[in-house]
Every structure is written in structure tokens, then in C-alpha cells.
Design a protein around this nucleic acid. Sequence first.
DNA 1: CCCTCACCTTGACCTGGATCAAGTCTGGGG
DNA 2: CCCCAGACTTGATCCAGGTCAAGGTGAGGG
Lengths: 242, 242
Amino acid sequence: MTSSRNPEEIHDRCSHCIGRKHSICSAIEDCDLAILASESSRMTVPDGRSFIEEGSPAHDFFVVTDGRVKLFTLLPDGRRQITGFAEGGDFLGLAASTSYAFGAEALGTAVLCRFPHASMQRLTDRFPNLEHRLRQEASRELSLMQARLTLLGRKTARERLATFLMERIHLLAPPCHANASQVEFDLPMPRTDIADYLGLTIETVSRVLSAFKREGLINIRGITHITIMQPERISAIAEGLE
Amino acid sequence: MTSSRNPEEIHDRCSHCIGRKHSICSAIEDCDLAILASESSRMTVPDGRSFIEEGSPAHDFFVVTDGRVKLFTLLPDGRRQITGFAEGGDFLGLAASTSYAFGAEALGTAVLCRFPHASMQRLTDRFPNLEHRLRQEASRELSLMQARLTLLGRKTARERLATFLMERIHLLAPPCHANASQVEFDLPMPRTDIADYLGLTIETVSRVLSAFKREGLINIRGITHITIMQPERISAIAEGLE
DNA sequence: CCCTCACCTTGACCTGGATCAAGTCTGGGG
DNA sequence: CCCCAGACTTGATCCAGGTCAAGGTGAGGG
């Protein structure tokens, strides 16, 4: 896990950033990017390495600029609930008061931009827009959480997997799924993570995916490559309609 | 459901409000309370009446000033997940972008303070502190959500009920549970709501509570009155330690 | 005071998903 | 090209919690 803040990279690190447009950084004007860059530092986290410890004092916010990350909570006996996956442009660290309410680790090599709380404070003081943007971000996440509670509290295994697949579809660039009769993508996480995300066991995840395949709803190539053959029906299952 | 904004009540509605100290309204100075009052209106919601429709356009924020409220999401076939209970001082409406991600209805007669989005916008423009306070509120809720996901995704029925009882204890005024060997309180919601909150059925809730009683962990008087006889052990069960 | 209705409890049985236990696939290294 | 380890799939069995079906209970009304 390496950090860098050398001056030569600072002046345009942010302007070329993949998260520039969609992350909270979009609340800041181009002309102020240098300030943004100077308040943050980039770090690279190797596959599987943890970079937020649940319950540890919350000192930083993060923006995922490349790769992916998983967020989770643990019970004392090791049971794990993955509370979310984050990728390019996603913001981490809102679910914390004085300490983090979740742990985080890289899913593959990930690159993050770190904003110490004090830096973020200076930024929000200077750019009131940013504070508003953070609230929006929090609201968006809270909305997602409502759906996730319903999934974990009330949906069956089939419905959970179907919902998960629909979520993956919606992560693709918009044109990819608008009325397409089939959609393809790769699942970047192992079955274990899918299970811990959906509140199931790895065996159930495997069985349900096999069942979907057998029923011609999806196709699976290799371990990770999924083709949704009947998006409508998967969507219907996700909503509990069949 | 009645609304009122008559001038005579405005000038001190907020200063006497039960939520004054703990709600987001604490971000506003006493001398500016009249502005706060003029941007909001009080409404009374009768028992069981719904006042937020899931998926409807989000026009307002609310502060619960008296009574209680339940928040929930529904699946098309009627399955329900209660995503939270709110009471005096709690803020509602952050889990929404353009439309509400949850429905809400009164649990007993409830009194709310309604802030149209436009009003809140004027308030946050005028009092930047308030925007920060809203973000804090959202962060607090996001932290709670992490715990709730873990509960629904990974805890057993016993653990869920024990966690629920601990949550109720922590809602009491602080002195009540500091090292007390027993704690008493009333459950303001029916078993159905507890079940839908914990992702269980009403029968399971009933059975687990009976088991706790049989084991001498709690006592139940009438339907609603609970005494926690062994808070330590309930707490341990909640964390999955026995 | 008793009826009644809504809510809760309890019991018997069932089942979806967990658990336990083999296989099987795959991709990277020798 | 083959071997090996890790990840996935599949099958057999189990069990926590759901479902179905009676009873209890108690607050409000006649």
C-alpha cells in the first residue's frame, strides 16, 4: 500500500481522474482542482489488503479511483456481512461518526484517493457546494440501504440472486442495457463475497445460479462471465413477481 | 391529519419543541427560531395513518416532535420490511432522491414538523451549519444501517430479538441503563411490527420472547411491558456470543 | 359484568436454505 | 503438457424458522 503526494503529479492528478465527473469531486470547479489535489493523496491497495478496520477511529474519507473494494461488518465469531461493493468514483467513509461502522478491503488491486477529515473540513468550508454534495451522496446511499434491508429481511434466495444480477446490469454504462434482449458482464467478486453480500451461503449462491442457467434465464462462461438471456424475467424474479 | 401555521403559535413553537435540543434544529441559534418556525408547519397524524408513500415524489422533510412513526418498504405481494422506528427528535426524509425510498405511518398518534425541500434549501443557504448537521444525521443513520444489514443477513432469531431489546434499552434516557442490573420499558409497537423489523414472523418473535422469559432473561407483564432481568446476557446473545 | 375482537401464544408439521461431504473445473507454475 | 491448489458445483441430510391451526388474553363497549 503506497501513498504519493509528489508536487509534479498534483497539478493534474485530479483533472485526469476517472472519478472526476461522477464522484463528489464534481462539486469542485476545474480551476480549483489543484486545491483538491493538495488536500488528498493517492494510494494503491493490493488485492485482499484491508485499509479500513471496522471500529477504528475514522480519520479519512476515500474515493475509489480505480479497481474495486468491498465493505463489510463482522460478528465476533467471524460471520461476515458484506454491506456493499464500491468502484470507480464511489465515495467511502460516510458511515462513520467517530469510528468506522464497517471494514473495507481491496477486491483486486485498487487505487484510492484519501481525504483526511481535516482536509475535507477545509474543502467544505471553502466550497459549500461540496457539503451539499456529501449530503446527496449520503441520501443516495440511504436509499440503497432501504432496498438492501428489504432484500435481506424479506426476499428468497432466488429473489436475492436475481436482484443482485439486476444491480450488476444497472452498473453497466446506460446504453448497454436499455432494452437489450441480452446483457453480458463479468462478476468481479468470488462466490463467497456474493454469498456474504446476499446473506446466503456459497452453496446456495452456486445452486441458484445453476438453476437460473438450467432454466435458460442466464448463461455462465468460465466462473465469472455471465450473460443474462432473459432480463425481463430476472427482473420479475427480483421484484418477487414469480 | 391537520396542519397549522397560524402566526401566534409560530413565534415560540420551536423554542418549546421537544426536538429542540436533539433534532437537527439544534444547529440553529435561539435568536433565529422564528425563521425556523416560519419555514415549517406542524401536523398531527392519527394512529395507523400513512403520511409518506414509498416511491412518491419527495417534497418534504419531517421531524418527529411527539409520538412515534414506523418506516417501511413493501414488495409487490405485500411482504413488508420495517426499516426503522422514529420518535421524538428524529429526522425523516434523507433516504430519498427525487422520490421517497420508504413509506411511513404513525404508530399511535404522532406530531410532526414538516419542512418542504424549498424551505430546507433556504435554511441551509442561510445557516451553513445546518447542512453540516444534515450530513451528520445521514452519517449516523448510515452507521445504524450497517448494523441492521448484519442483523438481517447474518443473525439468528434469538440474536435478532436480543439486539432489538438492547436497542430499546439504549433509547432510554442514559441514567436508566448505566450499570443497572435490571431495566424496564414498554414496547410501543405490536409484535407484527417487531417481526417485520427483524425479518421474522410474528410466531417466531413470540416464541423467542417466551423462551427468554422461560430462561429468566426477561420478564413480560401484559403484552407490552418488558423487564430485562439479565442485561449482560441479553447483550451477549445480541453480539452472537452465546 | 360479560362479550367480542384484535392480538398474542402455543403446538404440530413442513420446507428453504444451511451444513456436511464429495467431486469437478481452471489457471498458473514447473 | 501435466500437476496442484484454490474455487466452484453438486448431492445428501439436517434444522431453524416458516406455515398452518388452535387456543389464550385483555381492553373497550354494550
